[in-house]
């Protein structure tokens, strides 16, 4: 509309010159954001890649060692284990969180008063910091003084839930889900409220029941939100380590030492910044790759609207 109006008002060469300037803001507008991004994202990333090629203890000057750290990385059995545990936690978290938050989100999208009240309660964990959550759950899961000893019969006598690898991973998934389901529910609630009611009315006339409506209207309409939410889970899962640090500290042994935790240990506990930078670079590649892949296979980059034809 803008170009038409302007061409009507102004004639000839002036019109051709003015029109593009109105359509696209100049590059100058992007400078503040760009500077910020370069300074706080690109520069540190380049620094990490450089450090990964050195040996550095944080005190003396870094010594260039070439690819030494990287060779060590690819033959490190501990890293393989960490990568596997990271993957298990990631997939486990998505499998648990996604269905529950979709259902909760769709349910809480209704305008009934009891749903509003209950939703407020559901969202409560979102207000707590991960550190506080983890410390609280540590107390709750204590094998001697927490909840498990009270439920000893139910648990078959094994009250040491964090004492084995499977138990520890399960606990991590449960606690993470407990904290983050509200966040994803919020995404789905908003998305579900945006679905036009006319779709449901039409479906009802055609005789579709609740379940059919859910699978044939709600889910397809939530597609973009599912991708958004899953991307959050993937990237968040690859970088979340606070919960591991505080709940299991990578234990028992190194059974829950996920990649970010291994990175932290290497950098801030053993002061091997070079090797920690290798892990950091690897994580960077992994997270970027995963989110790119997600966008690619889901067609999210084409940004098709779910509202077509309405």
């Amino acid at each position: 509309m803008v170009s038409i109006t302007s061409s009507r008002l102004v004639r000839g060469r002036e019109a051709r010159r003015a029109a593009p300037a109105l359509e696209r803001p100049g590059v100058a507008w992007a400078i503040p954001g760009l500077v910020f991004f370069i300074l706080f994202a690109i520069v540190p990333m380049a620094g990490v890649v450089y450090l990964s090629l050195t040996r550095w203890d944080g005190l003396s000057t870094p010594q260039f060692t070439g690819l030494h750290n990287w060779w060590r990385f690819f033959s490190d059995g501990q890293i393989l284990q960490s990568t596997l545990v990271t993957a298990v936690l990631l997939v486990g978290n998505i499998l648990v969180q996604a269905p529950i938050s979709i259902l909760l989100g769709v349910w809480s999208a209704g305008y009934q008063r009891n749903r509003a009240v209950l939703s407020t309660i559901f969202f409560f964990p979102l207000l707590l910091s991960t550190a506080a959550t983890a410390v609280m759950w540590r107390q709750l899961l204590d094998p001697n003084f927490g909840i498990p000893p009270k439920l000893a019969d139910l648990l078959g006598g094994n009250t040491d839930l964090l004492g084995g690898q499977k138990g520890a991973i399960a606990c991590l998934i449960v606690v993470t889900s407990w904290q983050f389901i509200p966040f994803h529910t919020l995404i789905y609630q908003g998305a579900a409220r945006a679905i036009p009611l006319t779709l449901y009315q039409a479906a009802a006339i055609d005789g579709a029941g609740r379940v059919r409506q859910f699978f044939h209207i709600t889910l397809p309409q939530l597609r973009n939100s599912i991708i958004t939410s899953t991307t959050f889970m993937v990237v968040g899962g690859l970088t979340a380590f606070d919960i591991v640090l505080l709940l299991t500290n990578g234990g028992p042994g190194t059974d829950t030492s996920i990649l970010p935790f291994a990175m932290y240990q290497t950098a801030f506990r053993t002061y091997d910044y070079g090797y920690a930078s290798v892990i950091a670079s690897f994580l960077l590649l992994l997270a970027t790759g995963a989110s790119l892949l997600l966008v690619k296979i889901s067609g999210y980059d084409k940004m098709t609207s779910t509202m077509e034809g309405l």
Partner: peptide, 8 residues
Amino acid sequence: GTKFGSVG
């Protein structure tokens, strides 16, 4: 005992 792995 058996639970020391989770005892602080």
